[in-house]
Design a protein around this nucleic acid. Structure first.
Lengths: 251, 251
DNA sequence: ATATCAAATTGATTTGCATCAACCTGGACG
DNA sequence: CGTCCAGGTTGATGCAAATCAATTTGATAT
């Protein structure tokens, strides 16, 4: 092993090994032929490990990279001039954070870890260069960004048309399916975020979130103690999310 | 003029002339060097003229193209299983419609004209191919999609944190600045959409929109008669949008 | 002109959730 | 072991906006 190699491995900006990553079927490698994976590995940087509550990047600071969650979880939020916070998303392993910032020279939001979290960093200039060479990767980026727009539209719809119960049921189901895709239990999981974040994300007061949780619990739909949640009746939850529209087209 | 040329010009899929288009400083050409403009013209199709209320594309139908508004205006909306509509955006000349659909094989929303409207059509496969060749164009697409995500986050914030007055003031100011960028009066314009669409977009009841309009009118902030709007006191409007956060950080 | 129908306005009442306030719970730490 | 404090729960009250209901206005056709 040369000194240079040893040095490179010692720096914090280690190359990540997408080849061996367990998330390669969720993350960017998903879009890439095996023989092109090297070129992705060439640009990716292994980020350091963050403790709970640390900032990955801050709103208004220079936009340099997108980040893929490797383990742990992240919340993104916008801070208004008045100091109000609006949580815009929660991100789980394999998901890409920072796409909304592609519109400018600075980050459009702040990304904060919800627990001990590790990430992979994709410097945006190199990523753009690479997507120019790999049509499949470019296509995947478009897909991801399109999906992000849709998610955001879904959130807007939830906020403008649905009751507190419907919003919370939707969030629980969304988390459930995302845990499932990551080969974790879809009915028995630990919420990565605090009630406060849930409330903020869903446009509710903390008290309301709390009340809905206990109401669901009393109805036997879920069992919750702190952040530990068990979905006892998924169908009932799905029913809740559609309650509004069911009334709209009854008879 | 050869017969072939004459024929080509007679078909509905005429090539658009981006070179001569007055929107070239707003639309995709914005991102392209003059000498590359030809390659954009090669893939763009001049769409037909649509009357008010016609559909440009429908949710769940095969996703083929993005559309740039040439004249007129468009609203996009999602229809839920329950038949509920949620307006997700309004689009003015030079703006690109359909970016949210890049995530899948079908359109994620329905695009409907709000008035007599003409569009340019960009077949998505050709557009992707071209963005692979023109880094500036690719960069611009990323920017546009990132902006779309941000817009949607802003909307979510508006819906979850702001009062009816604040939402409507925001919309009026957004329209105002967009008219201004198009060299139309920022204080004197005609709303392209009905009260109903405004209400739906902002998560309000039509009655509330109506009431806020008259309240603003009585306060001398605007003058409105049907769709004709005059902004009499822009500063007051801006103040309304910040009222919430001002209270949050007073003292 | 007049009829017709959708869009918009205005008023009265209800309601879901925010807000205010008090109290619990559990983990960190001296 | 008790203290502290943030995070969470529960209860009482108020309010902004939805809903229900009735007109009015405006556009299009007859």
């Amino acid at each position: 092993m040369t000194q240079a190699t040893r040095l490179r491995q010692a720096t914090s900006a280690l190359k990540a090994s997408c080849h061996q990553c367990s998330l390669s079927n969720l993350c960017l490698p998903l879009a890439i032929q095996d023989n092109d994976l090297d070129s992705l590995e060439d640009i990716v940087q292994q980020g350091r490990i963050y403790n709970r509550g640390e900032h990955i990047f801050d709103q208004s600071s220079p936009f340099r990279s997108c980040f893929a969650v490797k383990s742990g979880s992240i919340k993104t939020s916008i801070i208004t001039e008045g100091g109000e916070e609006q949580v815009t998303g929660f991100f789980m392993p394999g998901e890409l954070v920072g796409l909304d910032s592609m519109s400018g020279e600075t980050y459009a939001c702040t990304a904060k870890t919800l627990e001990r979290t590790s990430v992979c960093e994709f410097p945006i200039d190199k990523l753009e260069e690479l997507t120019g060479k790999l049509p499949d990767l470019q296509h995947h980026m478009y897909r991801l960004m399109g999906q992000e727009i849709q998610n955001s539209h879904q959130l807007a719809m939830l906020l403008s048309k649905n009751t507190a119960e419907e919003r919370i049921a939707s969030l629980l189901l969304s988390l459930s399916s995302r845990f499932q895709r990551r080969r974790m239990s879809p009915t028995n999981f630990s919420l990565p975020m605090a009630r406060n974040d849930i409330a903020n994300f869903l446009g509710l007061a903390v008290e309301t979130v709390s009340r809905v949780f206990t109401r669901f619990q009393n109805q036997g739909i879920i069992r919750a103690r702190g952040r530990e949640v068990e979905l006892l009746d998924v169908e009932a939850l799905q029913l809740v999310t559609r309650e509004f529209s069911r009334q709209g087209c009854s008879q």
